[in-house]
Design a protein around this nucleic acid. Structure first.
Lengths: 121, 121
DNA sequence: CCCTTTACTTACCAAAAGTAAGTACCTACA
DNA sequence: TGTAGGTACTTACTTTTGGTAAGTAAAGGG
C-alpha cells in the first residue's frame, strides 16, 4: 500500500464497468448533459430558457437530464412557489469545475471545426 | 465583417441542432467514444487490446465507435494483411488534441470522485 | 372564452444499443 | 484429427433508451 493511498478500497477508474466514475462520466457526456452544463456556465437559467437555448432538446429529455445532474450535485434547482411556475437552474461549485472541462471540449471542437471537417487528421 | 473573420458562412455553435460541431461532439462524448479516446492516449492498441482495456464494451459497439472516430479523422486504422488479422488503432494529431480534453474530464472525475459521491456540491 | 405561458409528467412509438452467434483462417494441444 | 482458442469483424434478434405528442393546473391577455 503506497504512502499517499486514499481512504478508498479502490482507485477510481473509468475503464472499470462497475466504478461509479463511469456513471458520472456518462451523465456529464450524455447528449443533453454536455449542452446543459455549457449553457449554465454563463449563469442561472430557467427551464424554458434552457430549452430555447439548447436547440433540439425536448421537455422530457431536458427534465430528465436536469434531474440526473442535480442528483450528482452539479446543478442546483431552485423552485419559487408561484403561479405560473418559476424554477431556476444554476451550477454548484462542483458543477462549475465540471462544466469548465466539458466547455473546453465543446469550445475546442467549435474552434477547430474547419480542420476537423477538412479531415486533416 | 470583422477583420479576423473565417472563410465560413456560419459560426460553429454546438447549441444549434444543424451545426456539424454537434455531431462531432456527439461522437467524442458517446458512451464508448470517450473511453476509446482515453485508452488510445497512452499509445497504439489493437482491436482486442482495446476491447480488453475498456470494461463492458461489445465487439459490435467498439467496431462501430472506431469507424465513427476514424471517419472524423481522430483515429488512424492500420490493417496488416496477415492471418490471423492484425489491426492497429492510433490517435491522429487531431485525435491527440481532442483526447487531451476528454481525458482531462475523465481525469477530473476520477480525481474528485470522493467529493462528487459525498454530494458536497 | 379560448389561447398562451410556465414546468413538468405520462403514454406511445421509433431509434439506438446490447447479446449472441456466424465468418474465415491459423496455432496449439491432446 | 478434432477441438479449443485467438484474430477482427458482421449480422440477426432483443432490450433499452430516446423522441413525439399530449395532458395537467393556474394565471393573464385578446
Amino acid at each position: 500500500m503506497p504512502a499517499n493511498a486514499q481512504s478508498f478500497s479502490f482507485a477510481p477508474d473509468v475503464m472499470a464497468t462497475a466504478c461509479p466514475s463511469r456513471a458520472i462520466l456518462g451523465h456529464l457526456t450524455s447528449r443533453w448533459g454536455v449542452l446543459v452544463m455549457v449553457a449554465l456556465q454563463s449563469g442561472t437559467l430557467r427551464f424554458s430558457a434552457l430549452r430555447r437555448r439548447i436547440g433540439g432538446v425536448s421537455e422530457r429529455m431536458l427534465s430528465q437530464t436536469l434531474q440526473q445532474l442535480e442528483g450528482d450535485g452539479f446543478i442546483l434547482r431552485t423552485a419559487h412557489d408561484v403561479v405560473p411556475p418559476h424554477v431556476d437552474y444554476a451550477l454548484t461549485p462542483l458543477g462549475v469545475a465540471a462544466a469548465s472541462h466539458v466547455a473546453a471540449l465543446a469550445g475546442w471542437i467549435e474552434g477547430n471545426l474547419p480542420r476537423i471537417l477538412a479531415k486533416n487528421g
